[in-house]
Amino acid sequence: MSSLQIYLQLAWLLILSALLLAGTGIMAGGSSSAAKKKKVPAIIVFGDSSVDTGNNNFIPTVARSNFWPYGRDFGPAGAGGLPTGRFSNGRLATDFISEAFGLPATIPAYLDTSLTIDDLATGVSFASAATGLDNATAGVLSVITIAQQLRYFKEYKERLRLSKLGEAGAEEIVSGALYVWSVGTNDFIENYYAMPGRRAQDGTVGEYEKYLLGLAEAAIREVHALGGRKMDFTGLTPMGCLPAERVGNRDDPGECNEEYNAVAKSFNGHLRDTVVPRLNKELPGLRLVYADTYDLLDAVVRNPADYGFENAVQGCCGTGLFEAGYFCSLSTSFLCTNANKYVFFDAIHPTERMYNIIADTVMNTTLHVFL
């Protein structure tokens, strides 16, 4: 055999080996990719202003925040911000949670027609500021009911199925997604305590609480029937310590309304100890968790300096005592210079920094089970 033939054979062997190695690499890469496939492919959100990323921008309601100073710190530092419809100076807790799961850093609003199904496939919010579990709560400011949010979810499922994802891809997203619920505060503050008609109809606050828990359970059951399996129902925060409720506390002006806080704790206790265990037992494949935010926000409000805050009594906007929504846009001359020093951005809603702390806490105490 000539030296040329030997050289050609060796060259061929080297090429063949390279091809085999490449093939092995491709196979290994595919296996590794499958192994690393996200356990949670999307975050799907239902609720109120605590998780509305802009749906109310697209409906006729005064419950909006798509204007300055909301979104002042949204986006890259120094970029000037962008009002998105989030009731905060920046991102919400669910945005940070999405990022913690390796998904996009912001969750889009379903009603934003500029978004494609690809934009929505990794997460979507159906939430609407000023809504509640009770349809009557949503009616106060003409916002999106939970029932309508669930109808949007059905529509979303169909859009996924009809897209390039197909039946299998849509099912993978729906069954693997984490469903986050954050709702209930408005039912008590905006409806039960503010509207005498609701109290006359439902009697004691305990009876109304029982009614709301029934609505929460029914909504969870509906999402389960539609294919949802991983769910988080976030408990109520100490709503009596919101700046707006402090200033409206006739019995002890300027202090937390402890009656409202007691209602939140009672609702949370029944949700945690009764509703969650029962549904996990009754619904096949369901993994429902209760995320506590009450204790965290209570601790921050009572000892803000321990968490690096300077003010937990007023919001950053205006006087910080009653302004929210459009009232914030009328009070920009009183806007604080550094929202990171404040627990609340307006008289009701937390700052981006507080939402980040909430997200970190919930991830470490509850949602890590889905990682």
Rank of each mutant, 00 (worst) to 15 (best):
T122Q: 01
L279F: 07
V40N: 00
E155W: 02
V45K: 10
A312P: 00
R86W: 11
G214Q: 02
A63L: 03
N311V: 12
G203V: 10
L13S: 06
R91F: 09
I6S: 09
A168G: 11
M239W: 03
L20M: 08
G169P: 02
N261K: 15
M239Y: 00
N89C: 04
S329I: 01
K36H: 05
S175I: 04
S329T: 08
G80T: 13
T84N: 04
V45H: 14
G214D: 05
N249H: 15
G269A: 03
S163H: 11
V263N: 15
L288R: 12
F96I: 02
G203Y: 05
A35E: 13
T106P: 02
G176R: 09
S175C: 03
F153P: 11
F267N: 12
D134C: 13
W12P: 00
I144R: 09
G318Q: 13
A42P: 04
A35Y: 04
T53H: 13
E282G: 01
A216D: 07
A18C: 10
S2H: 08
F67C: 06
L111T: 00
A77P: 08
F188Q: 10
V174I: 07
A121C: 01
D292H: 14
S65T: 04
F309W: 01
Y211F: 09
P41W: 12
Y290W: 06
G254I: 09
A177P: 07
I59R: 01
E258G: 01
S333L: 12
S50E: 02
K164E: 04
Q148Y: 15
R250E: 11
G80V: 12
D202M: 11
R151T: 15
F233P: 03
I146N: 06
T53E: 06
Q314T: 15
P60S: 10
I358K: 03
A264I: 13
R278A: 01
R278H: 09
D292M: 12
F233L: 07
A136W: 00
S17R: 12
P76K: 02
D273P: 10
Y294S: 05
I146A: 14
E155F: 03
L111P: 00
M27G: 15
L330P: 01
V205K: 03
W12D: 11
E217Q: 13
L271F: 08
C256D: 10
L92S: 00
C241S: 03
L4V: 12
K39Q: 15
G23Y: 05
E217P: 00
G85W: 14
D73I: 00
Y179M: 09
Y211Q: 07
A218G: 11
A79N: 14
E190F: 14
G285L: 09
R246Q: 05
L321Y: 05
P277D: 15
S33F: 11
L16T: 07
R353N: 02
C328I: 07
F370Y: 12
A129D: 09
Y7R: 15
C241D: 06
V247W: 11
H349S: 05
G227P: 13
M363S: 13
F67K: 09
M354E: 04
L133N: 04
G197Q: 06
G184K: 08
L21F: 12
G123A: 06
T94G: 03
R353F: 07
I146K: 12
P83M: 11
V263E: 07
L16W: 07
E99Y: 02
V51P: 05
I189K: 02
C317K: 07
A244T: 14
R302K: 11
I348Q: 05
G318E: 05
E217M: 12
